Computed example of a mutant assay.
Amino acid sequence: MIGLLAQFVLFDGFDPLDVIAPYEVLAAGGAFADRGVEVELVSAEGPRQVPSGLGLLSLRATARLEPDRADLVVVPGAVGALPDGAGDVPEDSIPAILARTLDTPLPGLLKQALDRPGRTVATVCGGSMVLAMAGLIGGRTATTNQLGLAALAATGVVAVDARVVDDGNLVTASSVTSGLDLGLYLLERELGPRVAHAVERLFAHERRGTVWRDTGSVPTVTV
């Protein structure tokens, strides 16, 4: 019986590893859990072939993002040129690729997902910047690639330099490889630590770092 639906968002220029790593982890979780997990590749526009930022590599979205149906919505970052530091934003740069998502139905659908009780929106790497640039997570805690933390903070987000940040219905992960850690943490949150541990052993990957939450004692020394 399907108990958990995770929709992975594709947009033009997405980073394939941001999608595939947590996709495989969550899909594997379905083999170990009696609740069951279904994973889908989706886009804001519906079924289509979606080009990644890696040349000829593309993935097919088989459905439209449906915030009223998905339990988890996972947003990846992008692949492209890095900012040149001179203030220019080339069309093939990561900031430009992410900014183009604002001209699609994606921000409105992500807002619906964040507004619906019981839904969780998760991001990998620059995926949190999509939400931030759309004005959806101002004042909330989140992370992104280290190169983008200042830009994330400039949008009004409380940027945290951590591998994974849990802010309730918003769970964000930092660099591209953190998609594995994000997937395992989401399995632990949704299906329990025993299922997450089984998948961790299957993938021979030990999660890195502490999942940051805004709880507990405040450190008296900053490092």
Rank of each mutant, 00 (worst) to 15 (best):
L98M: 03
A151P: 00
E190N: 12
R207M: 08
Q112F: 01
V171W: 13
G168W: 02
L106M: 09
L184R: 13
A153H: 06
C125F: 02
T104C: 03
P47G: 06
G30N: 08
E188R: 15
F32M: 12
H205E: 07
G80W: 01
A96V: 10
F11M: 03
T210C: 03
H205S: 07
P117H: 05
Q112K: 11
F14N: 05
L102T: 07
V89P: 00
A142G: 02
A204P: 00
G209I: 01
T172V: 02
R60C: 04
L202D: 09
D167P: 01
N145L: 06
A86I: 04
T123D: 00
Y23L: 15
D115F: 04
L72R: 01
V74M: 10
G168K: 07
R35M: 10
V19H: 05
G85R: 04
A151Q: 07
E206I: 06
L180D: 11
L152K: 04
M129K: 02
F203Q: 11
N145M: 07
L170C: 01
P90W: 03
T62A: 15
A153R: 14
L59P: 00
D181L: 06
A142W: 06
D181K: 08
L65F: 04
L136T: 13
G77P: 02
V89I: 14
D34P: 13
R213L: 04
S174D: 12
G80F: 01
G183Y: 12
L41C: 06
T62P: 11
G148Y: 11
L56D: 12
D167M: 04
F8T: 06
R201V: 14
D181G: 06
V223N: 15
A33C: 09
D71C: 05
L186A: 09
E188K: 14
G36E: 11
V89F: 01
A134R: 07
A198D: 09
D34Y: 05
S43H: 02
L4A: 12
G53M: 00
T222V: 14
L110W: 00
A21C: 06
G179M: 03
T222D: 15
G192Y: 10
R64S: 05
A132K: 06
D84V: 08
R140A: 02
G209Y: 04
D103R: 15
G168C: 02
R116F: 00
L82C: 01
F203K: 09
L56N: 10
I2M: 15
A153G: 08
V158L: 11
P107K: 04
E190V: 07
L41M: 13
E91R: 13
D115K: 10
A142Y: 04
G118M: 05
L182N: 09
Q146L: 13
G209S: 06
F203D: 07
G80R: 03
V223A: 14
V164L: 01
